[in-house]
Simulated scan of single mutants.
Amino acid sequence: MVSTLKIEIEERDGESFLRDAYVTQPFRIMPVGQYKSDGASYLMIMSSSPGILSGDVYDIQVNVKENARLQLQSQSYQRLFNMEGSASQIMNVKMEKGSSFSYVPHPVVPHEDSTFKSHNKINIEDDCDLTISEIITCGRKHHGETFKYAHFQNLLEVYHHDRLILKDNVLLRPDIMPLAAMGLLEGFTHQGTFVYLNTKNEDVKEHIEFFFKVLEGLENVAFGISELESNGFVIRILGHGGEQMFDFFRKVQDVLWEEKVAIQI
């Protein structure tokens, strides 16, 4: 089944709002920031389906107009059910000048024999801030389905003035890849990726140093932070729990969203 979600966020007099929306089953879009006073738009993607099924194709399109700010949230863990075939998701984001977009979804849980391919393509203009992350778990560990999924892939591409400035491709094939080996997951069961970049020529070195110190306080994880050629960085974490990673990524999101590096985590 092909499912579509299209939203357009506009800004007027310092307030960002949902200008237009179009959804098909099982999608719904709900406002969740009614009590916030920062002028940004806070929306949650909701679904009447318990997860992604074989044959599902999700088409998500987000347009953040000039000077608008959008924080997009997920409803819950994304389950990829057992599949005879495959499922896919495409998310296209257009960020106009001076806009901000932040999306830190819940972890993905691939069930046994699931095959899922995701492609996130983001076009970003000048004076923008982008935050996006993903967490992939080993599957239903307590059901004996650790690394029993068939194929998981998430491709992220970010373009600035039609020039590719970031490409990140996560591909996991447990049947042909020794995921526990050196250079891959090395005994860990969960992998998280957090990406931040801006086109405001704002330096990110203080952010990198701050988050590195915070990461040193996390238990039972391995991590690294890489500075991007553009003004940004990528945090990669290996661990044993999706909730731990998700909580940390949400805290990083809060720091960046509020543009405060000295805030306590």
Rank of each mutant, 00 (worst) to 15 (best):
residue 3 S to K: 12
residue 10 E to L: 04
residue 10 E to Q: 06
residue 11 E to H: 02
residue 18 L to A: 03
residue 18 L to N: 06
residue 24 T to F: 03
residue 25 Q to D: 14
residue 26 P to M: 04
residue 27 F to A: 06
residue 27 F to M: 07
residue 28 R to P: 01
residue 29 I to N: 10
residue 30 M to C: 03
residue 32 V to A: 03
residue 36 K to A: 08
residue 37 S to N: 15
residue 37 S to H: 13
residue 38 D to K: 10
residue 38 D to Y: 10
residue 39 G to C: 07
residue 41 S to R: 02
residue 53 L to Y: 09
residue 55 G to M: 04
residue 59 D to F: 08
residue 62 V to G: 02
residue 64 V to G: 05
residue 67 N to L: 10
residue 70 L to V: 03
residue 74 S to F: 05
residue 77 Y to W: 12
residue 79 R to C: 04
residue 79 R to M: 03
residue 81 F to T: 06
residue 84 E to S: 06
residue 86 S to F: 11
residue 87 A to S: 14
residue 90 I to T: 13
residue 95 M to W: 08
residue 99 S to A: 13
residue 104 V to P: 00
residue 106 H to W: 08
residue 108 V to R: 02
residue 110 P to T: 06
residue 111 H to N: 14
residue 120 N to Q: 12
residue 129 D to Q: 02
residue 136 I to Q: 06
residue 138 C to D: 08
residue 138 C to R: 00
residue 140 R to G: 12
residue 144 G to E: 11
residue 150 A to F: 02
residue 153 Q to S: 15
residue 164 L to I: 03
residue 167 K to W: 10
residue 167 K to D: 13
residue 169 N to Q: 12
residue 173 R to W: 01
residue 175 D to W: 13
residue 177 M to G: 11
residue 178 P to E: 12
residue 180 A to F: 08
residue 180 A to N: 15
residue 183 G to L: 08
residue 184 L to A: 06
residue 188 F to L: 08
residue 191 Q to P: 04
residue 194 F to H: 00
residue 207 H to D: 12
residue 207 H to N: 14
residue 208 I to N: 08
residue 208 I to W: 01
residue 209 E to D: 12
residue 211 F to V: 03
residue 225 I to T: 10
residue 231 N to V: 03
residue 232 G to T: 05
residue 234 V to G: 04
residue 236 R to V: 00
residue 236 R to I: 01
residue 237 I to G: 03
residue 244 Q to T: 07
residue 247 D to I: 05
residue 252 V to I: 11
residue 254 D to E: 15
residue 254 D to S: 15
residue 260 K to M: 13
